[in-house]
Design a protein around this nucleic acid. Sequence first.
DNA 1: GTGGTCTAGACCACT
DNA 2: GTGGTCTAGACCACC
Lengths: 127, 127, 127, 127
Amino acid sequence: MLTIDARSTEPIYRQIINQIKEQVARGILKVDDRIPTVRELSSQIVVNPNTVSKAYQQLEREGIIVTMRGRGTFITEYIPDEISTKAIEQVRTQIKQIVLEGYYAGIEKEVMQDWVECYYNQLGGKS
Amino acid sequence: MLTIDARSTEPIYRQIINQIKEQVARGILKVDDRIPTVRELSSQIVVNPNTVSKAYQQLEREGIIVTMRGRGTFITEYIPDEISTKAIEQVRTQIKQIVLEGYYAGIEKEVMQDWVECYYNQLGGKS
Amino acid sequence: MLTIDARSTEPIYRQIINQIKEQVARGILKVDDRIPTVRELSSQIVVNPNTVSKAYQQLEREGIIVTMRGRGTFITEYIPDEISTKAIEQVRTQIKQIVLEGYYAGIEKEVMQDWVECYYNQLGGKS
Amino acid sequence: MLTIDARSTEPIYRQIINQIKEQVARGILKVDDRIPTVRELSSQIVVNPNTVSKAYQQLEREGIIVTMRGRGTFITEYIPDEISTKAIEQVRTQIKQIVLEGYYAGIEKEVMQDWVECYYNQLGGKS
DNA sequence: GTGGTCTAGACCACT
DNA sequence: GTGGTCTAGACCACC
């Protein structure tokens, strides 16, 4: 279900977070779905349980999952706490940064916009 | 000329790189312009000289600047080595990632596309 | 009668204990009232019987309830064993802690005192 | 500076967090003060560096401290992100809980209010 | 069985 | 030297 690239510079716990968030956003994981236990996932992707735990804790802080003691961990209804200006600013700054990199890599503006279009459309699935 | 945010999680040497690249792309810095020496810049922005040096080295490797011994450091004509598939893929992956974050932050697709538009249009200046 | 929040970080057995203690303190449960058996309650609030059992054991240790074999479990007259310095110290430490949290949450001193007033006044009922 | 009770049920990392928050609130630690490095503090209070690190990371998330890579960790201006309804509700729930415990421990309402008064007045110092 | 906490020790990026 | 990440392995509370 999850694929980890141990050689990536992106920390493993971040990879876990992002992939779960993506699967939730795409509707592959739905509210009340149970996700693997820390131990299950850690042995499945061959990673230390603490690393998985760290990812789960952060997902819980973000309100994507809830853990119920002794029962497991579940996808929860995502309700943005508030319109987080901070998060929005961060996204904008990062877009600015990437556009610059794309520019140096010789990527056309339209291509980048298409990518945004494309990836955005894959999200929001609630099937 | 450069503004460093010491509290940011973005490494200082990256901030230097990005700001210089941005100024070049926007036409604020032009080919053959001289940029400050490592020592000048490091004392100006109150940063360890090694940090500035690291940034300059990477900019030189990317072909943005060139140092001429005894004369200083200058902006050079930017010629992408080749159509770097790796760089392009990297940009695409990052866009995918950011779109996900933007989605969770409740940002509309069109808004993100506008940002791409906006930031891209600021580049390419050769005035 | 009892409402359990499975997602709360407060252990379920603690939730049971607290709610019963609260109902006793408010006079909703009175001396000699019978409370549900472990099995009844566990099936009613959909919780593992061991969890209910653990709560009842602790309540019995505290002298809030008493089980009579074959007859059921009953509210008993509450007689504090002794003026438990330990318990008092614990409460004081916790108040100190909460005041700190309230301070960071921007809550006025008077508001917190009002809450103490309000919740305290709800107790002590023996109607 | 910090005193850790290894036998307490309160996790060590929480004790660190609370004591630092308290010292900031009381004005003992002031904005831009440098706090010990992870390694320093960990050897000083004889605790694993990871434990200290965990505490520092959470304090950073709460906006109490900032860490500057390679330079150390500093107290920062505390600006509540927004009036966090969630945090306020949490404090209220906890007060309700403690009042109940205080009631069973035989503590008078006025005493508890005095404690709130007393501890609150120790905070807010900016000397 | 579940996750939460802690230790010991290693490696890496940044300054 | 600074913190961030990860591993391996232990213990505990909760269900």
